[in-house]
Design a protein around this nucleic acid. Structure first.
Lengths: 194, 194
DNA sequence: GTCTATAGCGGGATAGAC
DNA sequence: GTCTATCCCGCTATAGAC
């Protein structure tokens, strides 16, 4: 896991710092110290912080696509896929006070360099699109409630997950995150007919 | 509305900047420029940025309590009170790219000065407590679904509102916020018996 | 690809005059 | 209560040796 090459090590640490402290609250010095090199060497790999931000968000986007694609290939129900998404996000809860990347960047959106903003929007839309298609499938198969547009369900899920990670980190109450997941599950799950 | 005194003007502008750019992405220079005074004068009112942060969050907390109290005194249904809360948050959506204060501060929680973190937690808990008691009343009156602890409903609502403001700002799609509110409403509202 | 050294700026903060 | 002036620090970024 640890640093096949310096460039990757920088991106890994940058991701950790963004998710724990935010983009504007870490420095090249932090990266250099954490990796054991000098500031100037970090600039060799990413000339400006904007470049670094773009590279990071692009990587996040590609990883998300890859994760989602491999999940979609598995022959499991939409509900199991949704649960896999929840579990993926839940990993943040227990790790070093990190929140999800889109939550971290979303809150300081106006203070991000321009090109980072642009990459970020694409990243967001990709998650949104994937979630929507998953929910649509679930509706079509009759396991999810279908009196609501899947886009709207997706927006609720993404918003709540993002907010819940932030809330449970600050409050120190991890169960709040799980309570939210449970609520979201109930919300999309078609109630058993009686 | 505009500046009864300098101290208030500073707090007003600081709140706007926190909600649009985040706490660590504005400076005393920004405050001074926006108000038309000098940096040193800002330091006269709030010696350190930590002091300013604490004062701001304390004010937000008091305002939230006052707002909630006056709402609770009105003789309207729990649903109307919940809707009033949604409408209050919705004001952010249309104003200058601002998100709610707890969302802005929550995402950079680990990068906040210590005493600001502490004030922030109290602020959060107060909102949470108020929302919970409102939801409990709604359950007791039979207008909200009651197969879920009101604490959990409150966590979902607060998380989703906070996340939805961030999401709709970055995506530029205000309707995503309203879609989330609609979803939350459906989620707590007891379905009409058939 | 990593280093030392440094430029240049903006940040938070203080001293002391008015 | 606001000002000018200044300090010191950490930040992003670059030049140039190894």
């Amino acid at each position: 896991m640890n640093a096949p090459d310096t460039r990757t090590a920088i991106l890994d640490l940058a991701e950790e710092l963004v998710r724990s402290r935010s983009f504007n609250a870490f420095s090249y010095q932090d990266l250099a110290d954490g990796i054991g090199i000098r500031k100037a060497s970090v600039h060799y790999h990413f000339q400006t912080k904007e470049d670094l931000g773009v590279a990071l968000v692009e990587r996040l986007r590609r990883q998300a696509v890859a994760w989602a694609s491999s999940l979609m290939e598995r022959n499991v129900s939409p509900l199991e896929k949704l649960d896999a998404y929840f579990e993926f996000q839940a990993e943040s809860v227990s790790s070093k006070g990190m929140i999800c990347p889109h939550g971290a960047l979303g809150a300081e959106y106006n203070a991000l360099p321009e090109r980072v903003q642009e990459s970020y929007i694409e990243f967001l839309e990709q998650i949104q699109t994937w979630l929507t298609s998953l929910l649509r499938k679930g509706q079509a198969q009759g396991v999810f409630v279908d009196n609501v547009p899947p886009e709207d369900q997706a927006a609720l899920i993404q918003s709540a997950i993002q907010g819940a990670l932030q809330l449970s980190r600050a409050s120190g109450k991890q169960q709040r995150f799980y309570a939210v997941v449970k609520g979201l599950r109930d919300h999309v799950l078609r109630p058993a007919e009686s």
